[in-house]
Structures are given as C-alpha cells and as structure tokens.
Amino acid sequence: MSGTDSKHLPVWQESILLVVTALLMAVIVKGFFLQAFYIPSQSMEPGLLVNDKILVQKVSYWFGSPHRGDVVVFDDPGGWLGQAETITAHNPVQKGLELIGLFPTGGHLIKRVVGVGGDRVVCCDSAGRLSVNGTALDESYLMGGAPMDGQKFDVEVPDGHLWVMGDNRGNSADSRVHLGDPGGGFVAEEQVVGKAWLRVWPLNRMGLVRDPDTFAQVS
C-alpha cells in the first residue's frame, strides 16, 4: 500500500488535536518557563510602571535560588496585597488565558531582592544608604536616586528566605512594613514564582529587565 493511501484524521479531529496540543504546551510553558504578569502598584518605579505587562522567566531558579539584585515575582506571604494590587479575570476567555499564562496574573507581588539567606541588612548609614554584610549600597536605580527614608532596621535573613524591597522606597509596602508580621517581613524562596525578564507592554518601552551591578561587591 502506498503512502498516499494512508488514512488521515478528519479536519475537525485534527483541529481539536491541534488546539489541545497547543493548550498543553501553553500550560507546560507557564509551569516551567514563562508566565505573564502585570505591575499592580508604583512600588517598582521608575523601572516598572503601573500596568506594565511583563514576562517572568523561571529557568534561572530551576537549580538555584534568587540572587541579590534580582527583581522577583512572588506569592503573597500573607496580607501584603491590597485590593488595588489585585486583578481579576472577568470573563471565561480571560480566565482561560490566565490558566495557561497568557492573561496577566494578579495576586502576586514584585520586589527587588536585597538580602538572601544569611545576609545582614541594615538601614541606614549617614548618607541614608542600606548596607548588606557591612557593604553600603549605591542604588542608582531607586526612584529619583533617593536614599532610604530613615526607617531603621537591622535584620539577619534566615536561610531559605529573602529580604525584598521596592525601588520606589517612599511608596513600597515591602519587607520593612511587615517586620512585625508573623513571618518577620521575610519571603520564603519557595514562594518565588520567577524572575522579571522582559517588559512586553507598552510597546514603546519594551525591553529586558536588567540586573544592576550594585550587589557585585557584596559577599
């Protein structure tokens, strides 16, 4: 029997198979590689603005942990999110796209990792700068280049946890604000969804979310 005599699926069955395959691939991509999120607040200005749409990549943390300076998306540790920082899929199409990672997801936070397990993070020196393990940080990426607002703290990050802060230090409900919470303001590494990688919207500001070299000298 020649190859031309082989049977083919009906068009409608092929279409269903293609759709199911595409959905499965999308779910796999969301689970292991990429996921879409939106920026819910002003806490990461000036680098990321309210309603920016970003892609978060998960590959960096397959076999490792977040590093100082990474901008990470993480699950709410408990009571960190306000109503204004959540977004809900309003119709079946949006809910379906959210399920496979194509509709920007809410219910998460995005901050910069300042300290990792074992680090001592202190605020502040006479110039208003943070120090990590005794090294003062020159954080040129902050909103207006402004130093800290003077809130004092001296914490040691537990193993397997992170100390996170927003780049807009004057408008960020981050680890500082939650010092008195049961978790002490720390974020467990297992709550991290992934690392901010690419801004995809608006188009005129599309580009990579780059890591600063601020933390290179911290040991």
Score class of each variant (00 low, 15 high):
residue 1 M to H: 00
residue 1 M to F: 05
residue 3 G to P: 00
residue 6 S to G: 03
residue 7 K to G: 03
residue 13 Q to W: 02
residue 13 Q to A: 15
residue 21 T to A: 15
residue 22 A to W: 02
residue 23 L to S: 03
residue 28 I to T: 13
residue 29 V to A: 12
residue 29 V to W: 07
residue 31 G to W: 10
residue 32 F to A: 13
residue 33 F to E: 02
residue 36 A to I: 06
residue 45 E to W: 11
residue 45 E to T: 14
residue 46 P to M: 10
residue 46 P to N: 12
residue 48 L to K: 05
residue 49 L to G: 01
residue 49 L to R: 08
residue 50 V to N: 02
residue 61 Y to N: 02
residue 63 F to M: 09
residue 63 F to E: 01
residue 64 G to T: 06
residue 65 S to Y: 07
residue 65 S to M: 04
residue 66 P to T: 03
residue 67 H to K: 15
residue 71 V to T: 14
residue 73 V to H: 03
residue 74 F to D: 05
residue 81 L to P: 02
residue 85 E to S: 14
residue 87 I to V: 14
residue 91 N to G: 05
residue 92 P to R: 08
residue 92 P to F: 08
residue 92 P to T: 06
residue 94 Q to C: 04
residue 101 G to K: 11
residue 101 G to C: 13
residue 101 G to H: 13
residue 104 P to K: 10
residue 105 T to M: 13
residue 107 G to H: 09
residue 114 V to W: 03
residue 114 V to C: 04
residue 114 V to H: 06
residue 115 G to L: 01
residue 116 V to D: 13
residue 119 D to Q: 00
residue 121 V to E: 00
residue 121 V to H: 02
residue 122 V to I: 04
residue 124 C to R: 10
residue 125 D to F: 12
residue 128 G to W: 14
residue 131 S to Q: 13
residue 131 S to T: 15
residue 133 N to M: 06
residue 133 N to V: 05
residue 135 T to C: 00
residue 138 D to M: 12
residue 139 E to W: 03
residue 141 Y to L: 04
residue 144 G to C: 02
residue 145 G to W: 12
residue 147 P to C: 00
residue 151 Q to N: 13
residue 152 K to P: 06
residue 154 D to F: 09
residue 155 V to S: 05
residue 157 V to W: 07
residue 159 D to P: 06
residue 160 G to F: 11
residue 161 H to R: 06
residue 163 W to F: 15
residue 163 W to M: 10
residue 164 V to I: 13
residue 165 M to Y: 09
residue 168 N to I: 14
residue 169 R to H: 14
residue 170 G to P: 10
residue 177 V to C: 07
residue 179 L to W: 07
residue 185 G to H: 08
residue 187 V to W: 10
residue 188 A to Y: 08
residue 193 V to L: 12
residue 193 V to F: 00
residue 195 K to L: 06
residue 196 A to H: 08
residue 201 W to M: 03
residue 204 N to E: 13
residue 207 G to P: 01
residue 207 G to E: 09
residue 210 R to M: 14
residue 213 D to R: 07
residue 215 F to E: 04
residue 218 V to A: 07
residue 219 S to D: 15
